[in-house]
């Protein structure tokens, strides 16, 4: 079993790939494989991670042409072809280097972001979209004690609050690849989360993304939902937001 890793640093004319033979370990994750690469092959390899337990989202990268977290992706099951996800195609998924999926795990930086060094990308564009959505709760008034909440409201909200902002969906979205100004799946899902929060009083949340590069730019490829390590379905949020906005518009036209 081998690890084929994308390498790039400032001053290089073009990126290249390093191939490294992995020493087998039980239940080895790609993150562990990257540690082994550092320990035994080249300790200057750069990548980001923090928690090792798929909570922080720092280690999102393109693994076997699917954006995912290195800390929860198993090397052995990749080689067995078990974790392959059929994504709607986009340019970053085209093969830039030959690799043998039965022998090698291919690790590349998350697409749609500028590469800083090796597997580290600059995710600023992603966080800019997130901030554009005003991801802050706007209640009618601050209650003296905590709010009472109907527990049956929680599951729908949790579907979206689970997002860990790893940007895997952004790297998997064909529209983000073509249109740098598209707000992207995570930011839109976040906006929807505030829209459905019963404590939130801003009833014009959806209008924030009622723009060309917002809800309406989505092509419904569904890659976002497939790659999300936390099972968040941005595509559902986008579909529902579009339907609600259309209904709202129809109603206001009826009134005229």
């Amino acid at each position: 079993m081998k690890l084929k890793v994308f390498r790039y640093h400032e001053g290089m004319s073009a990126p290249h790939y390093d191939t490294f033979s992995l020493e087998e370990e039980p239940s080895m994750t790609v993150l562990r494989a990257l540690f082994q690469f550092q320990e035994q092959f080249d300790d200057s390899l750069a990548f980001q991670y923090s928690c090792r337990g798929s909570v922080c989202g720092a280690c999102a990268m393109l693994i076997n042409k699917v954006p995912r977290l290195a800390c929860r992706t198993q090397v052995a099951s990749l080689l067995k072809g078990e974790q392959q996800i059929a994504l709607s195609p986009y340019p970053a998924l085209e093969e830039k280097v030959g690799w043998d999926p039965s022998q090698e795990v291919l690790v590349e930086p998350l697409p749609h972001f500028p590469v800083v060094k090796d597997l580290i990308v600059d995710r600023n564009a992603f966080f800019k979209s997130y901030k554009f959505m005003e991801p802050v709760i706007k209640p009618e008034s601050i209650p003296p004690k905590e709010n009472l909440m109907d527990p049956s409201d929680l599951p729908d909200l949790e579907l979206y609050t689970n997002c860990i902002l790893c940007a895997a969906c952004y790297g998997a979205c064909p529209v983000d690849g073509e249109n740098k100004d598209y707000l992207g799946p995570a930011a839109l899902a976040k906006l929807y989360r505030f829209h459905i929060d019963p404590r939130d009083a801003d009833n014009r949340r959806l209008e924030k993304a009622d723009i060309n590069n917002g809800w309406w730019a989505c092509d419904f490829h569904g890659n976002c939902r497939q790659v999300c390590p936390k099972g968040v379905p941005p595509i559902m949020a986008i579909g529902q937001a579009q339907a609600e906005l259309m209904e709202k518009k129809e109603k206001s036209e009826d009134k005229k």
Partner: peptide, 12 residues
């Protein structure tokens, strides 16, 4: 008030 969710009982 910053938006965090905590689990609720039936009573809310």
């Amino acid at each position: 008030n910053y938006g965090a969710l905590f689990d609720r009982q039936e009573s809310g």
